[in-house]
Design a protein around this nucleic acid. Sequence first.
DNA 1: ACGCCAATTGTCAGCGCTGTCAATTTCTGA
DNA 2: TCAGAAATTGACAGCGCTGACAATTGGCGT
Lengths: 347, 347
Amino acid sequence: MPARIEDVALKAGVSTKTVSRVFNREPNVSEKARTRVEAAARELSYRPNPSARSLAGNRSYLVALLFDNPHAGSSYVMELIVGVLQACENTHYNAMLRPLDLSADAVAAVEEFVAQFRPDALVLAPPIGDDLKILRRLDDLNIRYSAISARSAHARIGVGLDERRAAAEMVEHLAALGHRRIGHIAGRAGHGARAWRLAGYRDGLRKAGMAYDESLVVDGDFTFDSGIAAARQLLDLRDPPTAIFAANDDSACGAMHEAFERGFSIPRDLSICGFDDTPASAQVWPGLTTVHQPCREMGRIATEQVLLSIREPEAAQTVRISYEIKIRGSTGPIRANSTSMALRSTR
Amino acid sequence: MPARIEDVALKAGVSTKTVSRVFNREPNVSEKARTRVEAAARELSYRPNPSARSLAGNRSYLVALLFDNPHAGSSYVMELIVGVLQACENTHYNAMLRPLDLSADAVAAVEEFVAQFRPDALVLAPPIGDDLKILRRLDDLNIRYSAISARSAHARIGVGLDERRAAAEMVEHLAALGHRRIGHIAGRAGHGARAWRLAGYRDGLRKAGMAYDESLVVDGDFTFDSGIAAARQLLDLRDPPTAIFAANDDSACGAMHEAFERGFSIPRDLSICGFDDTPASAQVWPGLTTVHQPCREMGRIATEQVLLSIREPEAAQTVRISYEIKIRGSTGPIRANSTSMALRSTR
DNA sequence: ACGCCAATTGTCAGCGCTGTCAATTTCTGA
DNA sequence: TCAGAAATTGACAGCGCTGACAATTGGCGT
């Protein structure tokens, strides 16, 4: 049987309340008492019972990560999870996970979840933090949350990077390589990331002095397959792009796949770049030029902030984090003669 | 304030104990009582308080998934997690995650973790279930666990597939394509998967009537980079292999990468295959021939079994699950003339 | 030395539930 | 119909901790 607070109190010659104070880092404990308690606790290998603590303190010491039901290989969620776990280490808090089906009634699902497990705080992975209905309901229920989102419409606490600027920079990179027809594979409708990256694409075109051509923007949904379909559509255009900026790496990989299917050489015949810097993007050949997002760190910071907001509501904030453009082998200078078209016609 | 068990009891006109019985599916509750309690609970939106329940019942209702500290992109852990979460749905159990640093004192880490959070059961992701020291300590501490492992040396409960047979089949596939020099990139030392897949590789050679050539087996550690290094070593041999069976997909992708760097065409100049069927393996070009492991299902089953063992210790068992060889574009028939060598020499 | 205030420590009820065991009701067979 | 067994129900202590608040101690100025 593990030691209880009473055992420690007895051994240290203090009351249980003093032991409680030490373990909760409450003020007004003398140095002497603290030392004795710590020694006694160490000797008895005392660990506070989380259930008792939760029950008495009316808190769950739980942070839940809410994320979109992951299709195979959404490695960013895994990275977020690791970040959340890192943030919980050496706190009394514990992480819980909750996949959410956004196509169903997510608001009800969140409510049910919160009612059942009573987490003290939520961390909302993209695109959950972009969903106003959910945020508002959480506000109503008076539940603390932190959004991982480039620019949450609503969340006061969170973390994110300037996806719009990053996307613009990516397009400028392509422009600097001489590309004048740059396609975009857009993200899934409803995701903030779709809007920001698309807006950044347009910013980039503008900065490079190019006109926006609607036919060069094709809908996708962040999946590999949608990347294939979108690339197909773009490459079948009468005047196809010489470069494609996909809204994320998965769809960029799909686009690469389609290019290979057509016998293209990358980047000779087509430059492709993505967004996110998933592990796969460094491993495909050629390596995918993309925007690096420090997902693990984002998960950690989002959690740290929301935990901070429990202690000091005013101190917590939205943290803007920096990104990095990773230039790998999938983007290169445009060729003088448009071989890509020639190849296409031989198909 | 949420409803308490007392509120439900009052409304249903029974004692709190009866309500408790209904919610815990205990026997000896009359149909009438059950119906009334359920109605009252629904009306009050009653949810049992998990902390109170744990405290009084001396159980945590927690299942913890222990996994090796994930390097970037170990998507199988994510799949396992989803499976574990699936198994917890509609039970009173809740999943916890615990990354473990196997290079440090993992036994102590597990002990500390268990002492602090008191999970009712553990699910051990590979390669944790292969670690005898950990298993024995858990036995000593009398902690229920389930191992995800092809052939755990020790665990009575778990799930796994016959990796050895799968590996042998993979090699036979290569042999059927005409390959007579088949290299192997081995997994990380200490992982059961390394041993089983290597043994299967040898089985496959034997079945195909080929001799085992030590020089064709190179150490790896399941990472992309180790795949690059190992492929380098294999392709630099005086008489290099015409096919490489890598112990997992990440290292197979590394091998592909190295082959491309040398200007090889796959599978014309070199066949490559892996193990696991990570999402990336379907997305690289050409698609990677590999062994499909249903990770999500394995996580679910491992969890279901260990939860079952709480209710019925004798009913739980080790479940053997079936694999599937996925033949994609990265393996093909051997060419008559050994172009791969010619290409290599021009480098 | 004394009063006053702040810092420290302790007391104890009670968080919401379940285990134990006793009480009550219902069923069975003669 | 009734004893006895079986099924159902309830009373209540207590799980291990913290919140509220009361008691005690120590420091300081006069």
